[in-house]
Design a protein around this nucleic acid. Structure first.
Lengths: 132, 132
DNA sequence: CTAGACGTTGACGTCGGCGTCAAGGCAAGG
DNA sequence: CCTTGCCTTGACGCCGACGTCAACGTCTAG
């Protein structure tokens, strides 16, 4: 299949597919006229990439998964390198969640304080709007 | 005080302070020779900006907080606009956490599957999951 | 023959929050 | 006077995953 068809099947754009190729993730054949030609395996590769991108992986993170598929495995996650990335990413996500949770608590604290002290933290003495 | 001193006191760079000014968040006076001159109030403003940046707010998000301080309030979070941003951001953070949690579960599932089927999903052998 | 629907490469634009020069002005000490 | 060290404005660089043109080649239907 040609690049337009693959883009449709994979739910992405031709630009994106060329971008992946430029970064060594997808490797189409070339027909006589110079057109990129993809097979089913490449479709699977692209779908793997897309689903990993969707969960926030970078292209570098994804590389081992593609290599794994390309090695003939039915899943991109069964090879050691990919598993390592998975573990690393899970830890990263956990750290992210912790940080966000801390942020959430801080924001809640600020909000509570703001609501509680409504009017108390008003400007310059006499409860008016006499600024400066 | 001049821009270098403020940068030190606020734990940031002069570049950053000029950037904030270019975006209307900080408003220094000018001395006769054209140097930026900041007072204590501006220091407080910059510190407010920095702490909100630290929790992931954009400069646009921060604008109402600065306005609130500038209106004479002791906290940047007591004004309606700022409170609205706070609520919105808390919701955003909650959404983020939910998404990350979903991602975490998906990654765990992938990892479990990868570990469980170790060797079973091996390469180019016809003896496996001909699924797909 | 021509239109138009595909394909090709190349290159610049996007978004935010700055970092990092470049080229010059102003103040003060040796 | 010269150096040092602060200040000024202006402008390009960066990161990632693409979007969007431009200018051109290729294939097919009418």
């Amino acid at each position: 299949m040609l690049i337009g068809e693959l883009a449709q099947l994979a739910g992405t754009s031709t630009r994106t597919l060329r971008y992946y190729e430029a970064h060594g993730l997808v490797r189409p054949q070339r027909s006589a006229n110079g057109y990129r030609v993809y097979d089913e395996a490449e479709l699977r590769v692209v779908r793997e990439i897309r689903s990993l991108i969707a969960v926030g992986f970078s292209l570098d993170d994804i590389r081992p998964f593609v290599a794994c598929l390309r090695a003939g495995h039915t899943s991109g996650a069964v090879c050691p390198d990919a598993v390592a990335v998975l573990r690393h990413k899970i830890a990263e996500v956990n750290g992210c969640i912790e940080q966000l949770d801390a942020v959430r608590r801080r924001l809640h604290a600020q909000l509570d304080e703001a609501v509680t002290s409504r009017g108390c933290a008003a400007a310059r003495s006499d409860g008016g709007l006499s600024h400066h």
